[in-house]
Design a protein around this nucleic acid. Structure first.
Lengths: 130, 130
DNA sequence: TATGCTGTATTGGTTGATTAATACACTAGA
DNA sequence: TCTAGTGTATTAATCAACCAATACAGCATA
């Protein structure tokens, strides 16, 4: 899997770019798609791929190092930490998705949508290819 | 229904407050929970209830007036416009939820979660009382 | 008219996010 | 040693979001 393709940002979405990236990297680590010891793209590589400033990516890497998700190795590139990439159990991973699902549920209620229709659409989206 | 209780903001969520409010009001209008001709709370009322600045609420109201969702009436308070509150069909309302569900689906995939588990949790959240 | 509400205009300020540009320290390989 | 990469530090600037404070114009009521 090329991490450069797995990560994306929506600059106009209203959420800061650095947060989007942090969230995504956390999820990939929790889901086991980032293996302990594997190399992260360099700040310059990722910044170029995403068309953002290298210092923005550096900020992401710094904050994730503080969380224990990544290991910083100046001159060598960042690495996925053992702790950070420990694949979590399904319940823990579901808990990471809970916030987004709560938001979806709230929006569905504001829109007065039937649960069955909402669940059908989500199922369709879950089954689509990336 | 008290609109003051139906609206909320999460200031630390990373999404601008004014966008959160606009999104919510749009959804309530599309879902028929805001009736044409009904009164919106004053900018001061809503600002106080949400602990934000009145000019922030005024910005929301101005932008929604540009969209045709609200009608501005200086000195009289804002009103829900006819066009804005036209209850949309289910397909149109589902389309308004699609963005959030796509995000949820993407996050579930990043977390390597089984669709069945995701759908079960969303169903539970949809059935919970507000 | 006065009062109390309504939304708006305006000025000035703060904060967070993002960026450009430059330079430094570190690593690996030739 | 030099080169080419690595992440970091630093300065300065811009922009969006948000705010406080004040005042104005409009509306309704007494």
């Amino acid at each position: 899997m090329s991490l450069l393709h797995a990560l994306s940002v929506s600059p106009g979405s209203g959420e800061p770019i650095y947060r989007q990236l942090m969230d995504q990297i956390r999820r990939l680590a929790a889901g086991g798609q980032l293996q302990p010891g594997s190399e992260m793209p360099s700040v310059r590589e990722l910044a170029q791929a995403l068309a953002v400033n290298p210092m923005t990516v550096s900020k992401v890497y710094s904050l994730l190092e503080l969380e224990g998700v990544l290991l910083r190795r100046r001159g060598l590139g960042m690495q996925v930490a053992d702790q950070g990439a420990a694949t979590h159990g399904q319940d823990e991973r579901l808990a990471l998705l809970r916030g987004t699902l709560q938001r979806a549920a709230l929006e569905a209620k504001q829109l007065e949508l039937e649960p069955a229709a909402v669940l059908a659409l989500l199922q369709q989206l879950l089954e689509e290819k990336p």
